[in-house]
């Protein structure tokens, strides 16, 4: 027990140090955002990489999640003769929870890993030092465009996942489960409020901040060599995914308290 305590203390200190580092990076980003000229070219490049190139993954995830969720709820609701409630349930689940969380997880895996690997490789090959030596801040040149691009792209991807999830769910409900399309859509519209959509998109903004910050921080702090970059990449995905899942609960509770459904 006594031997475990120093190790736990060291672990706790390391986590606190990381948290401090991430908060300092956020502070630096905010300062840079208001003090430096915007880098439109780099930012649009990143929006393309993060947003446009992630569409296939996100749309497939959204569509198949909506489909499987419709099948499972449809079959259960059929037992209690509530087939027409499938539409609102699928819609609320996709908009409030599934689309924001699953999109964020897919983006954390695809883009978070790429950002951490790219920045980590730049660090170990002295490219970050080269930037600094030329008087260019890596936060200004590398982090800020990725951060802004993530803030723009993730809510849009989330909205797409919501739409495709509901659309593909409706196709499954009508074509496979034999639910009347008119009831599906009218009930869905009746029970889904704009507040639900805003809630889902607000979550995605928070998730974008977490993913971009964690991926950039892990990349910047990669240790020497290929192993160091690999470890930074893995940690970026694991930490940002866990942060998304844990934060999702608290954001949902907080949002419900501020704006009850």
């Amino acid at each position: 027990m006594i031997a475990v305590l120093p190790r736990f203390k060291a672990f706790l200190m390391a986590q606190l140090e990381q948290l401090g580092g991430i908060l300092l990076l956020l502070l630096d980003i905010v300062k840079t955002l208001f003090s430096q000229r915007p880098r439109w070219r780099e930012t649009t490049d990143q929006i393309c990489k993060i947003g446009w190139q992630s569409q296939a993954v996100v749309l497939i995830t959204g569509a198949f999640t909506g489909m499987v969720f419709t099948v499972q709820t449809g079959l259960q609701f059929h037992k209690v003769k509530m087939d027409t409630a499938v539409g609102p349930v699928v819609s609320i689940a996709m908009i409030r929870e599934l689309a924001p969380v699953l999109t964020a997880l897919m983006v954390a895996g695809r883009v978070g890993a790429a950002i951490a690997a790219e920045l980590g490789t730049m660090k170990v090959t002295e490219q970050l030092d080269a930037l600094r030596a030329m008087g260019t801040s890596p936060v200004d040149y590398l982090v800020l465009p990725r951060f802004v691009a993530m803030l723009v792209a993730l809510p849009l991807l989330t909205a797409e996942a919501m739409a495709f999830g509901i659309l593909s769910g409706s196709v499954v409900a009508v074509k496979m489960l034999g639910i009347d399309g008119a009831y599906f859509w009218s009930n869905m519209i009746k029970f889904t409020a704009a507040n639900d959509v805003v809630g889902g998109l607000v979550k995605s903004v928070f998730f974008a901040v977490f993913i971009a910050l964690i991926a950039c921080y892990k990349g910047f702090n990669a240790r020497e060599g290929a192993e160091g970059v690999g470890r930074a990449t893995t940690q970026a995905v694991v930490v940002s995914s866990l942060t998304v899942l844990i934060a999702n609960f608290f954001i949902a509770v907080l949002y419900n308290a501020i704006s009850p459904p």
Binding site: M122, T125, E126, Q127, D129, A130, A133, M134
Partner: peptide
């Protein structure tokens, strides 16, 4: 300053 790094550190 101009800096020539050991591995050149060119941007990939």
């Amino acid at each position: 300053f101009g800096f020539l790094f050991q591995g050149a550190a060119l941007f990939d």
